[in-house]
């Protein structure tokens, strides 16, 4: 099977153009992470589990991961918007396979997440902690599989969703729990069995963990565990996403 890269690029190019033109969306995604970083991070004078770092510095990697999470999920769900505009039909009727469409869309999600991550890295470097170039680049590198995994989740759900009304549900029942149960704001401890169990099941825990390791050298799991869990989920979500895209048809 050959991949029609030009068509994939066409889908990606459209996503890039739309992303760079929707400034409101770019900024609004940063609001929650910034609130956590500066209101919760500064306001709650908690002790940092990582020695030598403040609590704000401890949760900074979590908010960075949160940016990836929110950008990717929202981006994926936005395919519902394409459906409503009927723009999706234009692409579905074009000589491009559903797999190629998925690939183009997923690359668009990665692009958005990388852009948002860069913004938060700059903010972080100025106001929160020293970030050297290598760890910044490593963060962006980690952002690639993480955002792909989560974008695929968003696209899968968005591919099934009929209207934007489901958006709030996904945020309440998936995105926020994934964030709160990941240990982005606290350390996962053995004493609290249920929190720990939820953290282990939650793929986002490993995303936070690997970014925290890169930025402040503190982590709960090994790099190998983090990466294998992320890649396992990535394969699963992409597989489901491509399957769902394959069944995309007009409802009428």
């Amino acid at each position: 099977m050959t991949i029609n890269f030009r068509a994939v690029y066409a889908v990606l190019l459209r996503e890039i153009k739309v992303f760079t033109r929707e400034k409101e969306r770019v900024i609004s995604i940063l609001v929650s992470p910034l609130l956590f970083l500066f209101a919760v991070g500064k306001g709650i004078e908690a002790d940092s589990p990582a020695a030598g770092f403040t609590y704000q510095q401890f949760i900074y990697p979590g908010t960075l991961a949160m940016v990836i999470l929110f950008t990717s999920i929202t981006y994926g769900l936005y395919i519902v918007w394409d459906k409503r505009l009927d723009f999706l039909k234009e692409v579905l009727a074009a000589p491009i396979s559903r797999g190629e469409l998925f690939l183009g869309k997923a690359l668009g999600g990665i692009f958005s997440a990388v852009c948002e991550t860069i913004i938060l890295l700059i903010i972080g470097a100025f106001f929160v902690l020293k970030i050297n170039l290598i760890s910044a680049l490593l963060c962006l590198l980690a952002c690639l599989p993480i955002s792909l995994m989560i974008t695929a989740m968003g696209l899968s759900i968005g591919g099934k969703m009929k209207s934007m009304e489901g958006f709030g549900l996904v945020m309440s029942f998936l995105t926020w729990p994934m964030f709160f149960l990941s240990g982005a704001l606290f350390e996962i401890k053995d004493e609290n069995f249920w929190l720990k169990a939820a953290g282990i099941i939650n793929p986002f825990t490993y995303c936070v963990d690997i970014i925290r390791r890169i930025l402040i050298g503190y982590s709960h799991f090994s790099v190998f565990t983090d990466l294998s869990v992320i890649f396992a989920w990535l394969i699963l979500t992409c597989f489901i996403g491509i399957k769902i895209f394959g069944n995309l048809q007009q409802g009428k």
Binding site: A7, A10, L13, R14, K17, R21, L85, D86, K89, E90
Partner: peptide, 25 residues
Amino acid sequence: IFQEPSSDDMLTGYENLYLHAMLYG
């Protein structure tokens, strides 16, 4: 040509056409 508008309103007219040309190789 669909019943409902199916061009992307964030893109220019030219870009909509250009993307279409790319999609059709």
